[in-house]
Write a protein that binds this DNA or RNA. Structure first.
Lengths: 212, 212
DNA sequence: TTATAATGTGACTAATAAGTCATATGACCT
DNA sequence: AGGTCATATGACTTATTAGTCACATTATAA
């Protein structure tokens, strides 16, 4: 957590520091980010930085937290009537919203992706344990409900499927941004539906295709 | 590519350098690896290092190449009668072999995972373009054959499915190593089958379950 | 106005990094 | 023995890093 000193600062100055941090953490892997560059960008002195934060990790954790909050806010906004959707409708909304979030908040999104893709397990554990959400648990919840409602195959392994979906929700967005124009909403929908088709029916040839 | 000087060295000395490099690249993200540590571990001087390699990337690329070769060799050994297997049998073999490779060559495996999970697209592109394989293309090939043989749903998007499987082949191994005992072959098979079940049939409740 | 507290500052230290270079060693050939 | 060439060396340079600290400035309160 930033020190009280930081929160006493004028809003504008806080924003300058956060903006500089966001830019830095979005541009480099964590281990290569530099406090020197951040203070230069934010136009504050080295001494000030250490009066606001314990160290680099302190700022990083704060920004990750903000990114996570922002994404939650965004998703809640996009997916209002969540209880009324079927599992696959909800999944579809989540993927689409994920792509839109990346468009709307590219820096936060990049930071989040870097964090999740990172292999510093100790750091991840530390940050996870201080904030609750874990998209994994969210998927576990909606899968349970999907099974209860009879929409999902009760034979699937819930924890594993949740892991798979978490992984996918990142992977599909990356795939899209690598291979297609992220502005094109129609194309987004097209790909999300392809992905849902596979999640729903699998890839085996069977007589199970054709029902939405 | 290492310089000729390196290949002129006694085999034992080459191995010492490679071993030190493997250890370093397995232990840290690329940007944090240190030539200083490598030469210390390998017990060679700084000057010698630069007589063997242009720079850190030169050694890194060489080691990535070796890891990739080693994995290919391993897979070819494990999966001999590849043409005679059905698509899902082959997929199963690939996942199991992937987990076994991680057990047998933990350092190479770690380096490979770090490389694939890395977000340095320029570096990846550079290394990819110099070696052909790309597991992605392999999946495209076996998916095409699976469709041709009538085993796979011809309506799936081939490129996207290949991307999905590539992603999965990494993800499932990570999941396994995070959550289970990687020595336990029975448990491995159990999880691989769960994953295949989902890939095959999807997660939707339907009348399509129950046939292997 | 004066005293106290909060905030700001950047030169400095101690590590560490990548890369260079003049010099040294030793093997092989004439 | 003398000469040539590949290999080996580590001190040195330049750049960058995280973090500290004595001091300066500004704001608040008495």
């Amino acid at each position: 957590m930033p020190k009280q000193t930081f929160f006493n600062l004028a809003e504008e100055k806080q924003q300058r520091v956060i903006a500089a941090g966001k830019k830095e953490f979005a541009a480099h892997p964590y281990s290569k980010t530099s406090i020197n560059r951040i203070i230069e960008k934010a136009d504050i002195s080295k001494g000030s930085f250490y009066q606001y934060f314990d160290n680099k990790k302190d700022l990083y954790k704060y920004i990750i937290e903000k990114a996570s909050e922002e994404k939650m806010k965004f998703l809640n906004q996009k997916i209002k009537d969540y209880r009324e959707l079927t599992f696959f409708e909800l999944l579809r909304e989540l993927f689409v919203a994920g792509i839109q979030f990346k468009n709307a908040y590219p820096e936060f999104s990049e930071i989040g992706d870097r964090f999740l893709a990172g292999r510093n397990e100790a750091l991840k554990e530390e940050i996870y344990s201080e904030s609750k959400p874990k998209s994994n648990e969210f998927f576990v919840k909606i899968i349970r409900e999907g099974i209860a409602k009879g929409e999902l195959d009760p034979d699937i392994d819930i924890k594993f499927t949740a892991y798979m979906l978490t992984d996918f929700s990142i992977s599909i967005v990356s795939y899209f941004f690598e291979n297609h124009n992220p502005e094109d909403l129609e194309e987004i929908m097209n790909y999300v539906d392809k992905m849902l088709y596979i999640m729903k029916n699998g890839i085996s040839r069977g007589e199970n295709n054709g029902f939405s």
